[in-house]
C-alpha cells in the first residue's frame, strides 16, 4: 500500500496547502539539547547496561542496573547473554556506553584480578535466603575456601547445606560473589556452574593449595590447641612441623582441639 494513495479526495487545493504548512511546522519542532545526551538518558532510565570484560574465566558479560551488577556470565554472544537476561530479569540490555558503566567495568576488571576494589552487586532479584547465602559467600577472602555446611551455618540455616549448593549453582553474579570458594565438606572442590575444571583453575590462580586440602580440610596446631579451615590465614601461619591435618571438624574436636574464632569451623555432634 502506497500511503500517498491513501490521501482523501479534496486534499488538493486549500487542504493541500494546509498539509504543506503542517509538514513545514513538523520540520521545525526539534528536540533541544544534545541528541546523544538525550539518547543516553533514555537508555539509562529504560534499560539495564551491558559490558564485557576480561576475567580469569576468559571474556565474560555483565549486566548493570541502577543499584549495581545484577548478572554475570559467559555467553556465545552478547545477544545470547541479553536474551537470557531478559528472560530472567524482565529488562532489556543496551551497551553500557555511559561513563558510569565504563568506570564500573574498569573496577570490575581490577576486582577480578585480585585488587581491593569495591564493585556493588545488586542481589534484589533473589529470595531472602539466597541473599543471605550470597552475602556470606561474598565475604570469603581470596585464597581461602569454606565448606557448604559452614556457609549454611553462617547464613543462619545450619541444616541447609544442600540448599546452599543450589544457591551456588544459580548465583547470578559468579566471580563477583565468589561461589567458586565454596567447596565440599571433605575439602574436595566439587562442582561449578562453569565446570569443575574451571573451579580448580580459579582456586589455584588465587593461591589455594587445592590438592593439599582435598580430603583434609582442617589444620590444627598443638602449640595453641586450635584448629582452623586449612586456608584460614591463621592456619597458614602454622609451622610445617606442627601441622595436624583432619578430615572433619569432629575428628579435630575429638583429638582435643577447639575451633578457631576467626574462621569458625562448624562443630557438630
Amino acid at each position: 500500500m502506497n500511503e500517498r494513495e491513501t490521501r482523501m479526495p479534496g486534499e488538493e487545493g486549500k487542504d493541500g496547502r494546509v498539509a504543506g504548512l503542517l509538514g513545514d511546522a513538523a520540520s521545525r519542532l526539534t528536540p533541544r539539547g544534545d541528541p546523544d545526551e538525550l539518547v543516553e538518558r533514555v537508555l539509562s532510565r529504560g534499560t539495564d547496561r551491558l559490558f564485557s570484560c576480561d576475567s580469569p574465566l576468559g571474556e565474560i558479560y555483565a549486566a548493570v542496573g541502577e543499584r549495581g551488577v545484577r548478572f554475570v556470565g559467559r555467553a556465545s554472544s552478547p545477544d545470547e547473554f541479553a536474551r537470557r537476561y531478559r528472560e530472567r530479569f524482565g529488562r532489556l540490555l543496551s551497551w553500557g556506553t555511559d561513563g558510569a558503566t565504563r568506570r564500573l567495568a574498569d573496577r570490575m576488571v581490577a576486582a577480578l584480578a585480585g585488587e581491593k576494589v569495591e564493585v556493588q552487586a545488586d542481589l534484589s532479584g533473589t529470595t531472602p535466603f539466597q541473599r543471605r547465602v550470597l552475602e556470606v559467600v561474598a565475604g570469603i577472602p581470596r585464597g581461602e575456601v569454606r565448606p557448604y555446611a559452614w556457609v549454611a551455618r553462617e547464613a543462619g540455616s545450619p541444616k541447609a547445606s544442600r540448599a546452599v549448593g543450589s544457591v551456588m549453582a544459580n548465583n547470578p553474579v559468579p566471580l563477583l560473589v565468589p561461589c567458586h570458594r565454596v567447596v565440599k565438606n571433605d575439602g574436595t572442590t566439587g562442582s561449578y556452574a562453569f565446570g569443575a575444571g574451571e573451579k580448580v583453575g580459579l582456586l589455584r590462580g588465587e593461591g589455594v593449595p587445592v590438592e593439599e586440602i582435598s580430603g583434609s580440610p582442617y589444620l590444627a596446631t598443638p602449640t595453641t590447641g586450635i584448629f582452623c579451615h586449612a586456608t584460614c590465614r591463621n592456619a597458614r601461619r602454622i609451622q610445617p612441623e606442627n601441622r595436624r591435618r583432619f578430615r572433619s571438624s569432629q575428628a579435630a574436636t575429638k583429638a582435643g582441639f577447639r575451633p578457631c574464632e576467626v574462621c569458625r569451623p562448624v562443630v557438630t555432634g
Partner: peptide
C-alpha cells in the same frame, strides 16, 4: 534476538 545495540537504535 537481544542485540544490545538495538535499544539505542530504537531511541535514535
Amino acid at each position: 534476538g537481544g542485540d544490545p545495540a538495538a535499544p539505542r537504535e530504537l531511541v535514535e
